[in-house]
Structures are given as structure tokens and as C-alpha cells.
Design a protein around this nucleic acid. Sequence first.
RNA 1: GGAGGGAUUCCCGAGUGGCUAAAGGGAGCAGACUGUAAAUCUGCCGUCUUCGACUUCGGUGGUUCGAAUCCACCUCCCUCCA
Length: 405
Amino acid sequence: MTVLDTLKERGFVQQLTHEDEIAELLEKEKITFYIGFDPTADSLHVGHFLGMMVMAHMQRAGHRPICLIGGGTAMVGDPSGKTDMRKMMTQETIAYNGEQFKKQMQRFIDFSDGKALMLNNADWLLELNYVQFLREIGVHFSVNRMLTADCFKQRLEKGLSFLEFNYMLMQAYDFLELNRQCDCIMQMGGDDQWSNILAGADLIRRKESKPAYGLTFTLLTTSDGRKMGKTEKGALWLDSDKTSPYDFYQYWRNIDDADVEKCLALLTFLPMEEVKRLGALKDKEINIAKKTLAYEVTQLIHGKEEATKAQQAAEALFGGSGALDNAPTVTVPASAIGTKLLDVLSFTGIVSSKSEGRRLIQQGGLYIGDTTVGDPDFLFTADLLDNNTLLIRKGKKNYHRIVVE
RNA sequence: GGAGGGAUUCCCGAGUGGCUAAAGGGAGCAGACUGUAAAUCUGCCGUCUUCGACUUCGGUGGUUCGAAUCCACCUCCCUCCA
């Protein structure tokens, strides 16, 4: 079974430039390919992780991945899939974000002995000469054809700046550059990158008269088509300071039934027989699949130790036994004793405002043990504490440990 | 450069002098039902010292007893013309 078969079987593959040639190529040769990641935030999120999984599968099959940090392209901003113009980011922010990306990527891809490369397109894009670029690259692009590309269509309604319109040329140039520098012959990316990838492959074929290939993989969406990995706090980040391993674990533990099998296939390395077996479980049973998914994904991103802790915390809170040490914890000073519980909740950020906290309490959504706290003036007293700790529950499944220091 | 249109609470989007903290939808939160799921139904959804007070409708200033709503200037965006 070739990597392409694997990728197909697991549900990654969306579009390919030359299906048969790619199949043959991946089977018979070890190729160099790349995926680009624009550092628009200070951490990767699950969407990026999907790309890392593709890379990992490819690397396991002996191909050489290039992680391309888009330090140059992020200066412009990709209009694909966006309805609004992006905020311009400062060069410092982009550079910082790029460094964060680098650190995280090293966990998923093996960069030892040149088995993978990490490059930054800022290195060649930022110093480009405008007129030269236009003459060398710009000539090969037909505006007429670009305008028919899907990625620009919706933006033609809403407005598209010349800055963003250039993004496609820059990405195409990246591919060409990598082809020249490292003999990179394939670009992969999320399905929204299809137009950009095609542009690059075309450019290489024209300028170098050499073959170049592209493949897009599925975007992570829920069964009803929404983008996956959205939480109340925004994206599901891979950085444990932005999304704790516990919250990360819980996200997958609570995934829709309909999405379990897909996620197991895409986001874990479990063999497909196992994925299918787990995905076929019905009713209550499917919770087993969700636990497996949550553990496996958390483990890949945060490591075994953190994944186990998250799992234990969840078991302790929902299963009713075991150590609670790893449950989400906030600390308050001893002086908080004797003040209103409401104030403590607000102070620790468990509720975002006192109004919200008051509402929560009045609606009966706050619990200590199994009893609801109905009184907004309820006091946070010492006798509630067990070992300096109070475990409260907000709604059905948001637990918080309040520890007095 | 000229002509017109627009900027509303997290998002979309009503509202053109008092009854508007501002319709409706989405998101979010809570309750019921459940399987730590989905769907559904119900309530909430600016802040605070919450039966009351305060702040909000791009910015600044003005008219008025009273403005998101009227006027002036400014900023940004869109459309058409050049």
C-alpha cells in the first residue's frame, strides 16, 4: 500500500493535479514536497495539525517534507477563504510567530539528518526586486484567468486589494524557489489552497520545463460543515498555555458522534481497522471511541504524560473517582475567604463578569458537589474547603478547583 | 478628482427625535431530555454596589427638555463616473 493509498483511505485527499503520475511517483521515488504555514498567530492550531499529520505520513513513507514558514507571505495575507481583508501584521509579530511555529513543528516531524527541512520564505520574498519580479514571474500570470479562480470570486463581491491579489504570485514563486533550491516537486495544502498550488505547479512547468505536482487535503470541518476546532475561547491551539491539555482533551472527548471516525482517521495513527471498529460503535458505546480519540490526539500534541493527566482528571471529575490534582485549577489568596463566592468566580476568571456570574447562580447553573448554589450572595467560607480546595461545577461539565494559597 | 451609499451591542442585521440597552438571526451561557454526543424545547445573553444606577450605536462638536436617529466637520469602507 502506497502513502497515497494511505492518505486516501484515511480521508485526507481532496484534489490532485495528476492522479496517476502522482501515484506512480510516490510509489517509486522518494520525493521532496512542501506545505506552507503562514504565521498569523503565535501558535499552531488543529487545522495546521492536520497538515502536520499529512507530512508525518509522507515522511514515514520515506519522502522529505519541507515545512515552509510563511514569514514573507504573511506580510501580504492570503485572501483564500476569507471574506474580509486581513489585518496587516508587523514584521516583528510575524517573526515572533514564526519562531513559535518552528518550536511546535519540531514535535511532529523528524528534522534530524536532513530528513526534513524548515525554511522561511521571508528569506527570499522580502528582498525581491519589484520590477524584476514582475518581469520574471508576473508575465506568466493572466489576470483574466486569475479572476476566474474560486478563491478570488467571493472577494470580487466584497473587495480585494491589490496587495492580496498578489498573494497567489508569491506562493507560486515559493514553489518555484523550493523547486530550484531543494528539488521540491510537490506542494500540499488544505483544499482552499488549490488555486495557489496550481499556480505554482504551472509556473514551474513554464519556467523550468519540469513536472510539478499538487495535492490538497480535506479541511477539518464538522459533519454539518462548520470549521472544526472552534471553542468558546476561539481556536483550539496546540500551545498548552493557550489551550490547556485538559481542555484540549475535553474538546475531542465531546466531539459529535458523526465526526469520531473521521477524526480518528485524520488525527491519529491508529490502524484503519481499529478506526473503523471504533467508529462503528453505537449509542453509549461510542464514548469508548471518543476517549480513544481524545487520548490519542492529546498524546500526539502534548505527550503521553500530559495526555494521561488530562485523562485522569476527566475520569476523576466525571467518573467520580481518582485524583483531582490535574483538574483545571485556579488559586486565590487566603484573604478571599469570607468574601462572596461570586466575587471569587469573577476574580479568578471562571466567569467573565459579575453579571454573568450572578446570572449563572440565579439560573441554578453553579454547583458545589451536587447541590446548586442559588444565592448570589453565597459566601466563600473556610468550612467549604477540603484540603484548602473547593471543587465547583459550572453547568454540566465545567469543573474548577479553587485552591486557597 | 466628481456623484452617491454606508459605518449599530461578539458576528450578521433592523431601527430615521422620546414607548430603545436598542427587533430578528447566529454564536455563547444555563435548564430539561441524554451517552461528558447531536437534535429539540425553555430561560438568559452591556456593566455595576441589580427591584436601582451607569455606559453604548465610527470620531469630535452642535441643535433639542430629550438623539443611534437632526446639523457640521473628521476618519474608514463600498458603488458609479474620470
